[in-house]
Design a protein around this nucleic acid. Structure first.
Lengths: 150, 150
DNA sequence: TGCAACTTGGTTGTACACAACTCAATAACC
DNA sequence: GGTTATTGAGTTGTGTACAACCAAGTTGCA
């Protein structure tokens, strides 16, 4: 399979355009989420952590970190803020004293319903079709996996 | 044009998967850039600011902010750090005293050559073809534009 | 001319994100 | 059993992001 030759200059430009667009899109999402989540008193990363807990129930900090691709340096203060807001409870595990299990409180469970309209609102805001969203998800997943190899 | 019905649950899941992948991909890029730019002593946002200056020459803070989609709250300290590193010089404009023009220093100009290999390295790290990169750029551009409308 | 509205850049406060480190607990090995 | 290595959270320091606000300069209009 032969491809048209791509000028070097365009190739280099393409790279930083993609990186930049990624950066910009990520922040644009953050901005819209900030608005959508304002009433819930959550930031976007906090919402992601709550999603994990709503979906899979109580689990150790480590497991949350793996799913969100975040380390303890980010998660520890974030979870502390969620605890301060009364949404989660942290309990050191009895079987492995190194591990801390994060539980939802009743308030944390209750918040789930109020968060239900958020995804649909975001979905509409992207202006993409379902096909395009699937493609985007696929491309992003591959990029992340490839970058993680480096 | 009729489409297959998409279950509600998948739709909602798709949204937060896309948002999450975007977030994750953006951070994955940041991580690889951090490595690629370490020798230059630049962070990724600082590199973006330098790109703007390398490409279009000296310009006011406002213009840089528009291109990078960043406000003064982020740019002011960032540019101060670049100035501290001796890469740029900030000069208040004489014709409009509100405006501050950012110039490259000789060291800032020189850094350009040392930064040349970076894009190719990043391009390779993504593991995508040129077609895929173009498509990704296009989708991301549309998403950002749509989100900015909100 | 004089004043209100707007623009530009800066500061402050809060919240990620991550590297580098510490500390305690557990696992692995001889 | 005792020593070493590894693991899980947390802390500290630096650097984005961004909202909210401020000060000074400019513009526009009555």
């Amino acid at each position: 399979m032969t491809t048209l030759p791509v000028p070097d200059s365009e190739l280099l430009r393409l790279d930083h355009q993609v990186c930049f667009q990624l950066h910009a899109a990520s922040r644009a999402f953050g901005s819209v989420y900030r608005d959508a989540l304002k009433d819930l008193g959550l930031t976007y990363p906090q919402y992601l952590a709550m999603l994990v807990l709503w979906e899979h129930g109580a689990q150790p900090v480590k497991a949350i970190g793996e799913q969100l691709r975040l380390d303890s340096g980010t998660l520890s203060p974030l979870l502390k803020r969620l605890e301060g807001a009364g949404l989660v409870r942290r309990e050191r595990s009895t079987e492995d004293e190194r591990s801390v299990t994060v539980h939802l409180t009743a308030a944390g469970e209750d918040l789930r319903e109020r968060a239900l309209p958020v995804p649909r609102r975001m979905l509409a805001a992207t202006g993409l079709t379902v096909e395009e969203l699937r493609m985007l998800r696929g491309l992003l997943g591959r990029v992340t996996a490839a970058l993680d190899e480096v």
